[in-house]
Amino acid sequence: MARSVALAHPPDPDPTGPTGPTPLAALRARPGGSLRLYAAVARSSFRRYAGYRAATWAGVFTNTVFGFFIAYTYQALWQIRPHLGGYDLSAALTYVWLGQSLLMPVAAMGGGVQDDIEARIINGDIAVDLYRPVDQQVWWLAADLGRACYHLLSRGIAPLLVGSLFFRLRMPAGGAADQALTWVAALASVALAVTVSFLLRYLAALTGFWLMDPRGIRQVTVVLGMFFSGFLLPLSLLPSALAAVAQHLPWAAMVQIPLDVFLQRRTGAALAEGLLLQAGWAGLLLGAGQLLQRAVVRKVVVQGG
């Protein structure tokens, strides 16, 4: 610190008048400009979750047990009604275990940084966050992506390996190029799934600034996430009119679409359509989040919380 103040703050080449910052100043101070910062946030978040080993193993165990439970239920169901919803038994079982793999990383039913934000709103720590010259939405997105990476590597892979020992699961088939394309598309689809899920959870968490208690919204989002993501049952099992709508909702982008990409039920145009739908929801929710975030800042700064 010693005598480095002058160095630290070179005189502004663009002193700002009472009319506000000039475009140049605004650009320089623009939050979210630094990709490296958000990469560091994601890494920190990854390490943070990696710090809890016991919780990870307990989670893997739970995922695996649930995987067996649902897989046996599916098996019974598919023996009576083969090709239900267009899935054969092997595809259906793969659907179950992949669904378990995505449960934590995607957090379609709520959780992840949503828990942190809600807690910080309730205890008031969220005010401290506003002192940081960063874009809050991008900051939390980075944190959630870091978390999702850890959960994918731990709670995503382990149950899937166990499941593959006891059931015949379906891996991407076809030529080497087809297989590679499927893997890449599936990973991209999972990344988009996490993003869409985060953006929706972020919106839900921000409602905490108006509703004193976030639990009501949370319950609604849990139920919506459980059914409309396709986590419990593939959406094609719903009555056809409802299924057609559900396939296009943001929740479908969280589980149904990435799983169908992996199972090669979406190839060619359908694949592109699925990824576009995910990206579209991500863009829409990103914008909505920015608007809501602005309203929150206005509420805090102008009304005083």
């Binding site: 700002t16 100043a25 101070a29 939050p31 506003l130 002192y131 940081r132 010259p133 700064v301």
Partner: peptide, 9 residues
């Protein structure tokens, strides 16, 4: 309040 982010630095 108008230049919060800039001031934060």
């Amino acid at each position: 309040s108008r230049e919060r982010v800039r001031l934060a630095r």
